[in-house]
Design a protein around this nucleic acid. Structure first.
Lengths: 228, 228
DNA sequence: GTCTATAACGAGATAGAC
DNA sequence: GTCTATCTCGTTATAGAC
């Protein structure tokens, strides 16, 4: 019984994987807005209606691709964090940033899917939230470890932002002080600004040595967020 | 003759404007990837072939929309810089950043067109470069003025990045020292990271008071780039 | 029960003849 | 500039194979 179920499930997982793979190819060729179940089915030699056994709608397929992308990026970030081990917080931060950049460069279309323009007519469901949070959780961990080790530089926090920063800290990292949570989220958004600019072509004719520039910029980012 | 030409030209400009307006509506509804000359023509009660008198191809229409968007954003940045006048460099920087954010929030689809994922199958021609540079030029001006006024804080520059920073400065702002040029470009990319995260939904369930958070983050950005 | 294939719907895009 | 015939799409109902 276990084996029979296992075989069925294995077959199902294989087809599911093949569908997502074909969909990712289409993503690269045509973009998320034009992802079509029929084209995916055609590429697999299936009939479009058969896909509905695996994904209840086109949007659910998109959602699956989005979750996979967030998970793959999150896994890369976690791996880099782990490899950095007990290094100085700045260096852990940089290592995670570089892992994000490397993943983005090797998976440009999946990166665009999650951090690029929203797909018209598609709204990501709540199911994507945990996967989306993974990379952020890694960054939070870097700050947490920094506080238990060499500490953090003092960070300014205007009275104006204090309530929002407190709310934010309570929501994403109750053990971190408000100003650290705020600095971490800002660094997080700015990191992806650097990656997106490189990937989406804004650095064309501007930055040549992108790898070194990135390292320089994220080092500044880390220091600006109080890491040392 | 002048009046006749003038009238003709005025009519042509009006139609051109109407086409771009309809195209922008389509951008909002369907996204840049699905922008189609036919749909634009339909909305205007024209026949698709008539559009080719105004735009030789779909890509040229897209290019015109992109240039318009860069120009509108650049104009907003310039206006904010002008309004800030002789204020402290930090405050000039913040004013420009807030103008960028405000423009992006009021023109989300045009923002996505220029700073979001690339449109599959479309490559922006060199003609877009001057318009794309306008906002950056404003930021460069803030740094230039800062140096002639209260000055800039010292910025670190690793030996590793020195050649690239020197090349960059020579290309975009020969009167600025390499480390300032590098810091300025980094701040530029990070600014758009903040705006994109807010606009593309990454701050959903994370940041509530986005205006205050933005102000806080770009203040940090300005300080990190040496402004005071 | 689990899957695939056929056929069809309504909506929309597209190409070409006129 | 108009019309029509032929595509595409997402999605569903249905029937049959394993």
């Amino acid at each position: 019984m276990t084996t029979a179920q296992g075989a069925r499930e294995r077959a199902r997982n294989e087809v599911t994987a093949a569908i997502k793979e074909a969909a990712r190819r289409q993503l690269a060729a045509e973009g998320a807005a034009k992802l079509s179940l029929r084209a995916v089915a055609r590429e697999l030699g299936m009939v479009s209606s058969a896909l509905y056994r695996y994904f209840p709608s086109r949007d659910e397929l998109l959602t699956a691709l989005i979750i996979d992308a967030y998970d793959a990026l999150g896994a890369a970030a976690e791996k880099a964090r782990h490899a950095a081990g007990e290094a100085a917080p700045v260096d852990c931060f940089i290592a995670v940033c570089e892992a994000v950049r490397t993943w983005a460069l090797t998976h440009p279309h999946e990166y665009a899917l999650i951090y690029g323009s929203p797909v018209p007519g598609y709204a990501a469901p709540e199911t994507t939230v945990p996967a989306a949070a993974r990379t952020g959780v890694v960054l939070i961990g870097v700050f947490r470890d920094a506080r238990q080790g060499p500490g953090l530089d003092e960070l300014p926090l205007s009275a104006e932002l204090r309530p929002e920063a407190a709310r934010l800290a309570a929501e994403i990292a109750p053990d971190l002080p408000p100003e650290v949570a705020a600095a971490m989220v800002a660094a997080w958004a700015q990191l992806f600004g650097l990656v997106s600019f490189e990937l989406f072509g804004q650095f064309n004719n501007v930055i040549e040595d992108r790898e070194r520039f990135f390292r320089h910029a994220v080092t500044g980012l880390a220091r600006g967020a109080g890491l040392r």
